[in-house]
């Protein structure tokens, strides 16, 4: 097991897969594991996580560090959240938001085990809804597959992202406009983002996710 890249803490690879080192040596999503000495490494599936897909596609920056404070929008069952929890470690913290109550049962269970996760049921189209439950963050990560996902992302970066902080936007072309070619749509999104914030890098996520892209932005 070796580091995927010196820039990224706690993310590892072997010949075939990428992994994070499990914070508590446990697994949560029936993921495969590898043991080396005392450490347990959890296999991270790029078909289930757009962040993993972005990493495998060679994204140059992700912003996550040990101790990062993360605002995660669209947490769902918590699959990606659990890996982010490994990466930022016990001094980091994730505010994990989702709108759908019955989908987030697993997320709540995860948060009960992991001290660095707070599960929050809210609509991230209304950032003021959770102003008393979240803090300013080093990273805003969004994966919600909604029509106005770019505006929602910018609103949340505006409200909660520290200056110098990174924003990661996983974008699903189909949920925005099915008539446009994904490529054109990504260009248009790029322009929209750049009016407000600087875009550091982006990757198209196929073959892991069809018609998806991951954008990395940085707040001045």
């Amino acid at each position: 097991m070796i580091l995927l890249d010196k820039k990224f803490p706690n993310i590892f690879k072997d010949k075939k897969n990428i992994y994070t080192k499990s914070l508590d040596k446990k697994t949560y999503f029936e993921e495969r594991t590898k043991r080396e000495g005392k450490n347990v490494y959890r296999e991270w599936d790029p078909k289930r996580s757009k962040l993993a897909a972005g990493l495998i596609k060679g994204i140059s920056q992700i912003g996550f560090k040990e101790g990062s404070i993360v605002l995660y929008l669209g947490a769902s069952h918590g699959y990606t959240v659990s890996f982010v929890s490994d990466i930022i470690g016990k001094n980091g913290f994730i505010f994990a938001i989702d709108i759908a109550p019955q989908v987030t049962r697993d997320l709540v269970r995860l948060a009960e085990e992991r001290n660095n996760i707070a599960p929050i049921l809210a609509n991230c189209n209304h950032p003021e809804e959770y102003k008393d439950t979240v803090s300013k963050s080093d990273i805003v990560y969004q994966d919600i597959a909604q029509k106005n996902q770019v505006q929602i992302f910018l609103k949340n970066c505006d409200a909660y992202l520290n200056s110098g902080g990174f924003g990661l936007l996983a974008l699903k072309a189909r949920s925005m406009d099915v008539t446009k070619k994904p490529k054109d749509l990504f260009k248009q999104v790029m322009k929209e983002l750049e009016e407000k914030i600087s875009v550091v890098d982006y990757r198209v996520l196929d073959p892991y996710e069809k018609d998806h892209a991951l954008f990395i932005v940085k707040k001045k």
């Binding site: 913290f93 505010f95 109550p101 019955q102 987030t104 049962r105 997320l107 709540v108 948060a111 009960e112 001290n115 660095n116 996760i117 707070a118 599960p119 929050i120 049921l121 439950t133 979240v134 803090s135």
Partner: peptide, 27 residues
């Protein structure tokens, strides 16, 4: 300083309550 542990405890409790109360005929 933000008291993360306190926020976490509060969030878990609130989320559980919301999940419980959201169960309806739809489900």
């Amino acid at each position: 300083m933000v008291d993360f542990e306190k926020l976490r405890k509060k969030s878990i409790e609130l989320a559980k309550k919301t999940i419980r109360e959201s169960i309806s005929e739809d489900n």
